[in-house]
Design a protein around this nucleic acid. Structure first.
Lengths: 211, 211, 211, 211
DNA sequence: GTATAAACGAGACGGTACGTCAGGTCTTTCT
DNA sequence: AGAAAGACCTGACGTACCGTCTCGTTTATAC
């Protein structure tokens, strides 16, 4: 899926723009080094301990090279995350013939993602979102929406097969399924386990299917 | 309910301690001025833009007067929020005789809270939680847990009356009910409405009760 | 001569001000450390290579401690110079009974000063004067004017004794005597020697006295 | 007088070099634009506020185009000044038959120059000289020395005619005459007037001639 | 009543990071 | 091959807050 061309880039940091600018082009090597450094640091010490100077030092470049590309450290981290997210974190829906099984499996990989190193990163980004509107928009359009679309497609298969009632509020259903997972991730009051997701799937789908 | 005495205070900021210290006592006026200033600033510019110096300036006092009372800015804000929260934001559970109705009503006031001015403050604090561990712990112990306890008590009434199966995972159920609301609050991908909570309540409880 | 109280301080960096300011007083130790560091660096590498960060590092203090006291690095150096100048560089006029001899001797010590380490510093400061008006005013009032007053007093003795005609323009005479010395110092086209001063004294005084 | 060929060019920036280089020739238009921009800026804000980037911006060219021609900003300004100086500021010595009259007249035009707009520029350059050794050397060889040579020639005429004693130290005499003028220009303690020059000429020459 | 203990405002202190600027060098495309 | 544009690394700029530390003053209790 050629996602990059479809989704409007909120963050104007694209280097491989076809309309060549004059002057020396920005180094792709530096671009990547900055993103990697930012990712590494944020996972080591968290967002608030992350500094532009630290990124520059680790990436072997200068602060200015960073400021030339992104306006805030939040934007850097977001880009770094999305770079990884779209390529390495697929979270695919299987098509087992049973909607419930499809979700049980996919949500299992979501839980795995959220409890791993990217979970910390994600919650950090969500922290940034509460403050920065641009960041929020970028996050929604580049991470959340693509994922919700796919989720709705999986649910639609269930409706088409008669497993789910056709009049259901898809948006509410998606929130009911994933909301509890992120709830635990963000509040941290309890460990996020597969047991939770099993409970949620059971409650939500049994309520819908048993009618 | 004498909540303040039950819950162990993480933040040792109680002023009206009966064991009078020698020397000049801390000014209650200053105490309140600091909390008000912190609350105002955090609502205006968010947690990360909040500074101790800013609070001191707005409160017409000195940094030291703040540090004497709280160790971090997170603690100040949390105290300020909780002052408001415990007094002005009751979110009570009615006892209608039907668990589902009890929750439908209570969650309606939660939605009202989250969509009002305190919703912004809450999401700001949740943003801060992702960054500041101390803030997170204070938030959980002084806001979240008391609320969860009360919620579980309301659910227990349902179990006792036979409305809910006794073997259910209460924690998972609480997350299933409230998670979707906070999900929308924090991601902002859709408006948080009472329609959502009706859908969630229907899905979750119908799934459990219809068996 | 209690110079410090007479001359109005252009640079408001005086610490031993009798009108106590509120808050923690500025450290005299740091004050001195900054001045010494500035003096040392300026003599080693010159004014343009001097940086505030360098001064702070050498003085074992912070940039802010410097900015709190002086607005520019020029002001720091000026203060440092004047501190030394007023205490350690006396350039006294003897009273031999002969004006010409008085000047020959005093100017000899001026030449010695200008060709020594303070000569480099002085020319540096004169460079700064061309750029910074405040600096210029400070230099004139705290270094130049006291010196000119003393010089005129020495000349007056000559007039009183009948060695010099009473109608002479004292300011022009002072410039005629010292101008050539500073001319060589600043343009650096020729070495500044005692021979020059002897020539100048001879030309100027012989012209005046032989009438 | 073919000055350009006599004086060794410290600054290798000559454009109308007869030995044609290969490739596209440097634009004379740009050359002039840079010099004009430099001159304008230095007169507006002084040497220390002058930047290469500022010159490039004002001249509508790039930094590299400047670096291709001059090694330092000092060199640019010096070239700009000398361009003006050699063409528009002649300061000629008349040959009236009387050395004293010759100097009185020539120095009058010097005073006029120093008190006009070029006086400010000159003092700025002299400020730069104290800081930048290269600038100093360029200034001496291209401005000062030619002027001193001419001055000495004028004095020699006086010696040849018997107006001045043949054994005098010409360098000291030149400094005695012009030093006081520059002294006032650079220290700014008194206005630079023709009265001063009259006094100086009288003192210096009367001392020498009356023997 | 008078110590005395602590809070108070004010602000200096050594730090760290900020975001900007200019230096001087380089790489690319255009002319 | 020069010109312009602009990226590059470097390093200093002046500022903002941090959390701590004097100061001199004020306000309570405790002796």
């Amino acid at each position: 899926m050629s996602q990059d061309s479809q989704i409007p880039l909120v963050i104007a940091a694209s280097t491989n723009n076809s309309v060549r600018r004059r002057g020396r082009p920005r180094s792709e090597r530096i671009h990547q080094a900055i993103l990697q450094a930012a990712l590494a640091i944020v996972q080591e010490v968290g967002f608030s301990e992350l500094t532009i100077e630290g990124i520059a030092a680790r990436a072997g470049t200068s602060k200015l090279a960073i400021y030339r590309r992104w306006p805030t450290k939040a934007a850097v981290v977001m880009e770094a995350f999305l770079d990884q997210a779209t390529s390495k974190l697929p979270l695919p829906f299987p098509d087992t013939g049973s909607v419930v099984d499809d979700f049980r499996r996919q949500m299992r990989s979501v839980v795995k993602l959220l409890t791993g190193p990217y979970g910390k990163l994600l919650s950090t980004l969500l922290g940034g979102i509460q403050i920065d509107g641009q960041l929020a928009e970028a996050f929604r359009s580049r991470w959340l929406e693509p994922r919700r679309m796919e989720t709705k497609r999986a649910l639609q298969r269930g409706i088409d097969r008669g497993e789910l009632p056709p009049e259901i509020d898809l948006d509410a259903l998606v929130d009911a399924l994933y909301g509890p997972l992120y709830f635990r991730l963000l509040f941290g009051h309890q460990r996020l386990t597969t047991k939770l997701l099993d409970c949620v799937v059971e409650m939500v789908f049994d309520g819908l299917t048993s009618k």
